[in-house]
Design a protein around this nucleic acid. Structure first.
Lengths: 334, 334
DNA sequence: CTGAAAGCGCTTACAG
DNA sequence: CTGAAAGCGCTTACAG
């Protein structure tokens, strides 16, 4: 497999390197005939330009990095996939990176900016905390999806997300409306401006508005993985057999919790109702079908692409978009 | 955020560009003192070299591409993740690409070879068919995992996989041993040398060895997604209420089938046993817990990295490794 | 419409 | 141990 360069093509087509470059980039200022000739040679050689050389020279790279937090998170992967589909017709090229949940995606972002001279960056499922400081002087458009960056002081960071706090309130209200009085919450850390922290706040507000207090042990802090939520739920329900509903801060966590309940011989939803949040394909295929607060994946993706494009192509300032999530009650809630 | 170049660093440290490059690449021929000085300046500036420039010049790029077929396939993602972990200490850099199941990963591979001058390529979950022809003249080491490339004529392609045919036989035997006589199979296309085709052959052999024929309608060809397997199973079990076991060619498909059975009011495993194949974290958290033929993810990953490294670093010829899968019976099989 | 030339930021012989 | 210079394969003013 011979790898051709633009020089090889130029030689074979009997034109200059400049002309080949022009054809390659669909510039209008090439005669029809020349264009045809060059294109033929390129086809015949299966010519593909060297991305390194292009990236090195080109000022306007149109290269956008997408950093997904967690390779195993089905929701974030669905969202990223949908975003890429929405962006398919844009002229931007994407490099997609998965980063371990425990790694620092902001460091990685800075690295990519230097290393690849990208023109934009998307964070899928990032957490907002003190590390934001590291991104304040970033000069390229950034887009956070599923989490708000309003008020973080990152001038060039837009965000598209649901109203986590409100949806958490709705989730709790739905459980209360159905007669559940002893609700346990499996969530993440409650401190910060994180979407998980916002959900925790929403939970608290909703309970208090109805005259319930959120005692400490009704909120279980856990990593939202299958294994951790399962272990946390086994432990909790053994100690609190009176609990009649669980609100889980991700659908994955909800799956772990449901399995724990079954392990303890409790029925879902007859004995305990379970509500998740995110909304993934799988929810409808579980037994029982999982009730959830579904993030609008299409809408998140569409808006994210639009906001980022506005910033990159039209120099628009950062903006913050809230989209509507939807409470979907299926079998797992009584 | 200023982006520094090697020239900036050289200037600030009062040395030549060459020297900075040497420090950057950990070459031994730099005095301790100079090294220290340069390193300090680099740290202070958070210097990160331009990957495009490096890639353009460097002959030995040590850049390996990993192409994963399907962003939504939990098993392949687990496997890829594990491989990257195994390779963490190697000096190679990886670029990971997800490619749509319907897209042509071989075209993508050729593109990457030209575009990025990679030195090696890994296919995770690729299908083997006529398109292989396109890879015969590829000059760099290739490694296929979960599928065998023995006998395909791709000189530089190694492979690491389980014995799909044998494991399919074992799966069928396990079901037969437990008294199931009306087994339906939800699989992929039966033609070709694909791992799915091999599994189909194994199924046929096992049934025939015990005196059963695999009539046409006992093998349901379907895409192994939740939605498709669910629809296929609904249709099948409506027409064949007598079927007492299902063997599904992926765990994802098994989930869709179980949901369909529940939709039809059939119990798993009391009425119908369900066996999957692959083995993912989630299996143990489903209700009922999913029985499966588990591919040894760690072993696949470890061997894949080793074989590829042998080829790249020591010029070893292609080789084909078979690792042992394990039948794990859980609640979904009676 | 076309081409010669400079230059992107590195690495790598080569010379000292 | 250190540096000046060539060159990787492109793109982009600039000139014609």
């Amino acid at each position: 497999m011979k790898i051709y360069t633009i020089r090889d093509i130029a030689q074979m087509a009997g034109v200059s390197v400049t002309t080949v470059s022009r054809v390659l980039n669909d510039r209008p200022d090439v005669s029809k005939a020349t264009q045809e000739k060059v294109r033929q040679v390129m086809e015949a050689c299966h010519f593909v330009g060297n991305a390194n050389a292009r990236g090195l020279k080109q000022a306007e790279s149109d290269l956008v990095a997408v950093i997904i937090r967690g390779r195993r998170n089905p929701f974030l992967n669905e969202l990223a996939e949908t975003m890429l589909q929405c962006a398919r017709d844009s002229r931007a090229a994407f490099i997609v990176e998965h980063i371990d949940e425990r790694a620092d995606e902001f460091r990685q972002a800075r690295k990519l900016i230097s290393e690849r001279r990208i023109t934009g960056i998307v964070f899928v499922g990032s957490r907002i905390d003190a590390r934001c400081e590291a991104l304040k002087d970033v000069g390229i458009p950034m887009l956070f999806t599923t989490v708000s960056t309003e008020g973080t002081g990152m001038a060039r960071a837009s965000s598209v997300c649901i109203d986590d706090r409100r949806m958490a309130r709705e989730g709790i209200n739905a459980l209360l409306d159905r007669g559940h009085e002893r609700i346990v919450v499996f969530g993440g850390a409650r401190e910060g401006d994180d979407s998980l922290a916002l959900r925790a706040q929403g939970v608290k507000e909703a309970l208090e508005a109805r005259g319930y207090a959120l005692e400490g042990d009704r909120y279980v802090e856990t990593r939202l993985t299958l294994a951790d939520s399962h272990a946390a739920a086994l432990d909790y329900f053994r100690r609190h057999p009176e609990a009649d509903a669980a609100f889980c801060m991700s659908d994955t966590a909800a799956m772990g919790v449901i399995r724990a309940l079954h392990d303890l011989g409790r029925r879902v939803p007859e004995d305990v109702s379970v509500l998740g949040i995110d909304g993934v394909d799988m929810d409808e295929y579980l037994t029982p079908r999982l009730s959830t607060i579904a993030q609008p994946v299409q809408e998140l993706a569409r808006q994210s692409v639009e906001v980022l494009r506005d910033m990159i192509e039209r120099g628009a300032p950062a903006r913050h978009v809230t989209v509507n999530a939807e409470l979907i009650l299926r079998e797992s809630v009584r």
